[in-house]
Design a protein around this nucleic acid. Structure first.
Length: 861
RNA sequence: GCCCGGGUGGCGAAAUCGGCAGACGCAAAGGACUUAAAAUCCUUUUUUCCUAACGGAGAGUGUGGGUUCAAGUCCCACCCCGGGCACCA
C-alpha cells in the first residue's frame, strides 16, 4: 500500500514541507487573532468574521466533504489577512447530543471519553490540512466553561416573554411589576412546560423535535416514532415566526434557503369561522385561507382526534367513528400522510350550520385533516380545493362551484383566484376583495375573525437522554424555578449507567443525590437537545475564554459589528442539511439575545454559502456500503495537503455537486510540481535543492508583467466571488508562461507565490523562504503575513488589439487594430479589409454593427 | 403532484453586459530525452466535408419554436437527470 507512494517519484518534497510549516505556525501562533484591547490589536483595520459550520465529530473522522468548505473559508481568510483585515476564523466542535450518546452506548464507553477522543482526532486532521484557524479560541459544547453559558442563555429565554406590541422579548420582571400571577407569568415565558403531543421514539428512549423525524422514523438511527402526550419543555419560537420570516430579507443567503425557511415557517393568512352544531350549544371553529368560498362549503371535516368528535357523533354512527379513530391512532405518521394515496373518513352523523346561509351540512372525520394545524377542523369546499374534491368524489358528497375561473381555465377543481359566484354577499367580487368583505361581515357578527396560521410549531426542547446540557431548573412542589446564575454551570452527574430508561423518565433521574437539590427541591432531569450548543457558538468564538460573560461586550460588538447590515458573521459556509434546523434555531436565540440587549445585531449570519456535495468517483453519493468513500488521509499521504486543498477547489464551483477524481488530484499535484520546478532544478529527495539558474534578479518583460498582473487581478476578484476553480486556472496559465521563459525574474515569482499562498500555503511558504535566503532583498517574514500584491492596470494595456470581423454574423476574419481606434475608423478599416471585400462582393450592405474593442458585423444581402 | 438545482467535447469544466463556444485540467495520440521505462518537456485533440498539402466550407451548448445584425446566455413550450417537500385547509 505504502509502496505506491515511495515507488512513484514525488513531484516535490511535500512530506517534509508540510509538517515543517504546520509546526512553525503552531509554535509562533501565526494565526492568533487579537481582540479589541489585546496587545497587537489594530483598530484601524476592517474586520472580517469567516465561519465554518460547527462540525460534529463522529468516530469515522474526516471525509473529503469536510475540507471542501473549510478550504474555501481558509482561502478567504488568508486572502483577507494579506489584504490587511482583522480576520476572525475559529474552529471548535459540537459534541453533545444523540449521535455521541448512541455511539457511547454501542461501544460501552462513556460519552465523555469517546467525545474527547473524536475531538482530538478531528483537530489533528484539520491541522494536517494547514488551515489558519486561531486554535486559541477552540471551543467544545461539552466543556462546562462553555455550557455554563448555554444554560445562562436558557435562563434568559426562560425569564423573558414576547411583547406582541413591540414584537420583541422583554424581561419577565415587567410582568411581575404589572402584578400578574405566577400562573399568568408561566403561561407567557419563552421557555415553558406544557403537555403536548410529542414524537416519542422508543428505540432512542427520547422525544424528538418534528424536524428530527423523517418519514415517521428518527433521523438518528432510523427508529420508528410514535405520537403520545407528554409534559415537556418548549421554546416559544412561534412568537418569532413573523420576524424569522420577514428579517430574512436583508441577508445575503441563497434564495433557496430563504424560501425553505419561509416555507417551514409556513405563514398563512386567512380567517377563523365559527359554525354552530345543529341541535347543540357546541360550535366548531375552522381555519380557512379562502373565506370567500364559504358558500361552497358542502360538508365539514374534523381531525379524528378533535375533542368535539364524541359530542357530535350520533348513536347510529358511534361504532363506525370509534373504529375509524382506533384505526387512525395505530397508523404511523408516514402511513397517514406519505403512503396514503386514497382518502379515508367516516360520517359522524352530526350536522353543522353554515353561518353565511344557515345551510345544514354534514360533519365527517378524516385523517387528512391534522389536529396539529389550525383548529383541527375544516370547512370542505370540494369545488375549489384539491383534497376536498378528492374526498367528495370518493364519498359522493355534493360539489358546488362558487368561484368562476378566469377565461380559458378548464381545471375540474379550480383553486386559484377568480370571481365569486353563487355567493349572495360577495357575488361578482374578485377573490381578494371577496375575502376581505366576507371576513368583515363575519367579524361584525362575531362569527369569525382574520387570523394567521403557521406551520412552525413551538420547539420541543427536552430530551430524555444523558449526553446533553442539564436544565438549570429545579422543581419545588410542582413549580419550576431557575437555578441562581451563581450556581452555573449545572454539571451532569458522573453516571455509570447512562443508558435511556426505556420510559420517558430521563437517565439523570438515576442520580438520586444529584437530583435532590435541597429538602424541598428536585432538579429537572431532562437535558437539552443537540441543537442548543450550536445556537450561539459563533458568539463564544468572539471571546472564547471569557469567564465573566458569554462574550465580552466589546469583543462581541467588534466581531459581530454590522456596518448597517443585520447579520454579524460576514461569511458562513456549510452544507444545505442545516437549512431549517440549526439556522432557524440559531436565529431565534440570537433575536432573543438581541431584544434583551445582549448582542448588537438582529441576525447572526450575514452571508451564507452552501458548499455542494462531493460524490464518489462513480458519481454516486459516497457511502461505506458502496465502497466509494475517499479518505483524505490517503490523499494527503500520496499527494500532500496542498494538492488535496487545491483539487477540492479546482473540481468546479463551490456550490455545485461534483464527483471525485483521483486523476484530477494528480493533475493539480503536477501543477504544484511545475511551480516547484519554476524555482528548483529538480525534485531531488536530498536535503539540498539546487535553485534554478533561470531565477534571476532581472527586469520582467512586458509580456510577463501582463500575465502576472492579469493573474493578480483575476485571482483577487475570483476569491472575492468565491470562484476558486477559475482562480486556479489562471495561476496555471501564469505558471505555464513562466515555465516557458528563459529568465524568471525574482519579483514576478515572489508576486506569484503571494497569489498561490491562500490555496497552497505550505508550498508557497517554503519556496518564499528559500527565495529569501537566496535573495535577501525580498521583504522578510512569513509569506502569509506579507501584503497581497497590488494589481496595476498599466501592465495590461496593449498597443494593438484583435477585432473579430463578421459578415452576416459569421466570423470571417480577425483584424489587428490599434487599441485606441475609434468606431468610425474601425468601421472603415473593416469594410476595406481584404476578407470583407471577398464576402461582400456583389452584395448590398444593409447595416454595419461596430462594437468597440470587440467586433464588426457587416450585414449584407 | 409541487418547489428548487442542472443538461456545453471521451470526462471535470470555462465563457462580466447577448459579441470569436470549449479557457484550465483529465484522458488519448504523436514527438524529444532515455539502453529502456517512469518522470519531465514539446505538439495535436468538438465534429463533418473538400484539398496531396497549405488552406477552406458547413454543423454544433438536451429538443422544438421565437426575439435580435448577433443567443450557451433573453422569451415560450417540451424532454431528461439530480435534490428537497409532501394532505398545513
Amino acid at each position: 500500500m505504502s509502496e505506491s507512494s515511495t515507488e512513484r517519484r514525488r513531484q516535490y518534497p511535500f512530506h517534509r514541507i508540510e509538517p515543517k510549516w504546520q509546526a512553525y505556525w503552531e509554535e509562533y501562533k501565526t494565526y492568533r487573532t487579537a481582540n479589541p484591547g489585546d496587545a497587537g490589536f489594530d483598530a484601524s483595520k476592517p474586520k472580517y468574521y469567516v465561519l465554518d459550520m460547527f462540525p460534529y465529530p463522529s468516530g469515522d473522522g474526516l471525509h473529503v466533504g469536510h475540507p471542501e468548505g473549510y478550504t474555501a473559508t481558509d482561502i478567504v481568510s488568508r486572502y483577507r489577512r494579506k489584504l490587511g483585515w482583522n480576520v476572525l476564523h475559529p474552529m471548535g466542535c459540537d459534541s453533545f447530543g444523540l449521535p455521541a450518546d448512541q455511539y457511547a452506548i454501542m461501544t460501552g464507553q462513556h460519552p465523555r471519553i469517546t467525545t474527547c477522543r473524536n475531538v482530538d482526532r478531528f483537530r489533528s486532521k484539520l491541522k494536517r490540512l494547514g488551515f489558519c484557524y486561531d486554535w486559541d479560541r477552540e471551543i467544545n459544547t461539552t466543556d462546562p466553561g462553555y455550557f455554563r453559558w448555554t444554560q445562562w442563555i436558557f435562563l434568559k429565554i426562560y425569564n423573558s416573554y414576547f411583547d406582541e406590541t413591540t414584537r420583541a422579548a422583554r424581561p419577565i420582571e415587567e410582568l411581575e411589576a404589572q402584578g400578574l400571577s405566577r400562573e399568568e407569568i408561566d403561561a407567557r415565558r419563552l421557555a415553558y412546560v406544557a403537555e403536548v403531543q410529542v414524537n416519542w421514539c422508543p428505540g432512542l428512549g427520547t422525544v424528538l423535535a418534528n424536524e428530527e423525524v423523517v418519514d415517521g422514523k428518527s433521523e438518528v438511527g432510523g427508529f420508528p416514532v410514535e405520537r403520545r402526550p407528554l409534559r415537556q419543555w418548549m421554546l416559544r419560537i412561534t412568537s418569532y415566526a413573523d420576524r424569522l420570516g420577514d428579517e430574512l430579507e436583508d441577508l445575503d443567503w441563497p434564495e433557496g434557503i430563504k424560501r425553505h425557511q419561509r416555507e417551514w415557517i409556513g405563514r398563512s393568512e386567512g380567517a377563523e369561522v365559527t359554525f354552530a352544531v345543529d341541535g347543540s350549544s357546541e360550535t366548531i371553529t375552522v381555519f380557512t385561507t379562502r373565506p370567500d368560498t364559504l358558500f361552497g362549503a358542502t360538508y365539514m371535516v374534523l381531525a379524528p382526534e378533535h375533542p368535539l368528535v364524541e359530542a357530535i357523533t350520533t348513536a347510529a354512527q358511534k361504532e363506525a367513528v370509534e373504529a375509524y379513530r382506533q384505526q387512525v391512532a395505530s397508523k404511523s405518521d408516514m402511513e397517514r400522510t406519505a403512503l396514503a394515496k386514497v382518502k379515508t373518513g367516516v360520517d359522524t352523523g352530526g350536522y353543522a350550520i353554515n353561518p353565511v346561509n344557515g345551510e345544514r351540512i354534514p360533519v365527517w372525520i378524516a385523517d387528512y385533516v391534522l389536529i396539529s394545524y389550525g383548529t383541527g377542523a375544516i370547512m370542505a369546499v370540494p369545488a375549489h380545493d384539491d383534497r376536498d374534491y378528492e374526498f367528495a368524489t370518493q364519498f359522493r358528497l355534493p360539489i358546488r362551484e362558487v368561484v368562476q375561473a378566469p377565461a380559458g381555465n378548464s381545471e375540474t377543481c379550480f383553486t386559484g383566484d377568480g370571481v365569486s359566484i353563487n355567493s349572495p354577499l360577495i357575488e361578482g367580487l374578485p377573490t381578494p376583495e371577496a375575502k376581505r368583505k366576507i371576513t368583515g361581515w363575519l367579524e361584525d357578527r362575531g362569527l369569525g375573525r382574520k387570523t394567521i396560521n403557521y406551520k412552525l410549531r413551538d420547539w420541543l426542547f427536552a430530551r430524555q437522554r444523558y449526553w446533553g446540557e442539564p436544565f438549570p431548573i429545579v422543581w419545588r412542589s410542582g413549580k419550576h424555578d431557575a437555578v441562581p446564575e451563581s450556581e452555573l454551570p449545572v454539571v451532569p452527574p458522573p453516571l455509570e449507567d447512562y443508558k435511556p430508561t426505556g420510559t420517558p423518565e430521563p437517565p439523570l433521574s438515576k442520580a438520586a443525590d444529584w437530583v435532590r437539590y435541597s429538602d424541598a427541591a428536585l432538579r429537572e432531569t431532562n437535558t437539552m437537545p443537540q441543537w442548543a450548543g450550536s445556537c450561539w457558538y459563533y458568539l463564544r468564538f468572539t471571546d472564547a475564554r471569557n469567564e465573566q460573560r458569554f462574550a465580552g461586550v466589546e469583543a462581541e460588538r467588534y466581531w459581530m459589528g454590522h456596518n448597517r447590515k443585520p447579520g454579524g458573521v460576514d461569511l458562513y459556509v456549510g452544507g444545505t442539511e442545516h437549512a431549517v434546523l440549526h439556522l432557524l434555531y440559531a436565529r431565534f436565540w440570537h433575536k432573543v439575545l438581541f431584544d434583551l440587549g445582549y448582542v448588537s445585531t438582529p441576525e447572526p449570519f450575514q452571508k451564507l454559502v452552501n458548499q455542494g456535495l462531493i460524490l464518489g468517483e462513480d458519481g454516486q453519493k459516497m457511502s461505506k456500503s458502496r465502497g466509494n468513500v475517499i479518505n483524505p488521509d490517503h490523499v494527503i499521504a500520496e499527494y500532500g495537503a496542498d494538492s488535496l486543498r487545491l483539487f477540492e477547489m479546482f473540481m468546479g464551483p463551490l456550490e455545485q455537486v461534483k464527483p471525485w477524481s483521483t486523476k484530477g488530484v494528480e493533475g493539480v499535484y503536477r501543477f504544484l510540481g511545475r511551480v516547484w520546478r519554476l524555482f528548483m532544478e529538480s525534485a531531488d529527495e536530498g536535503d539540498t535543492h539546487a535553485f534554478s539558474a533561470k531565477v534571476q534578479e532581472a527586469a520582467a518583460s512586458p509580456a510577463m508583467l501582463k500575465v502576472l498582473h492579469e493573474t493578480i487581478r483575476k485571482v483577487g476578484a475570483d476569491i472575492e466571488a468565491m470562484a476558486f476553480n477559475t482562480a486556479i486556472s489562471q495561476m496555471m496559465i501564469c505558471t505555464n508562461e513562466l515555465t516557458a521563459a528563459d529568465v524568471r525574474p525574482v519579483s514576478v515569482l515572489a508576486s506569484f507565490l503571494h497569489l498561490l499562498n491562500p490555496f497552497a500555503p505550505h508550498l508557497s511558504e517554503e519556496l518564499y523562504s528559500a527565495m529569501q535566503q537566496r535573495f535577501p532583498a525580498l521583504p522578510a517574514g512569513p509569506l502569509s503575513e506579507l501584503p497581497w500584491p497590488r494589481f496595476e492596470e498599466k501592465y495590461l494595456v496593449e498597443n494593438s488589439i484583435e477585432i473579430v470581423l463578421q459578415v452576416n454574423g459569421k466570423v470571417r476574419a480577425k483584424l489587428e487594430v490599434p487599441a485606441g481606434i475609434d468606431a468610425e475608423a474601425l468601421k472603415a478599416l473593416a469594410l476595406s479589409s481584404e476578407k470583407a471585400q471577398e464576402h461582400i462582393a456583389g452584395k448590398t450592405i444593409r447595416n454595419v454593427i461596430v462594437v468597440p474593442k470587440r467586433l464588426v458585423n457587416i450585414v449584407v444581402q
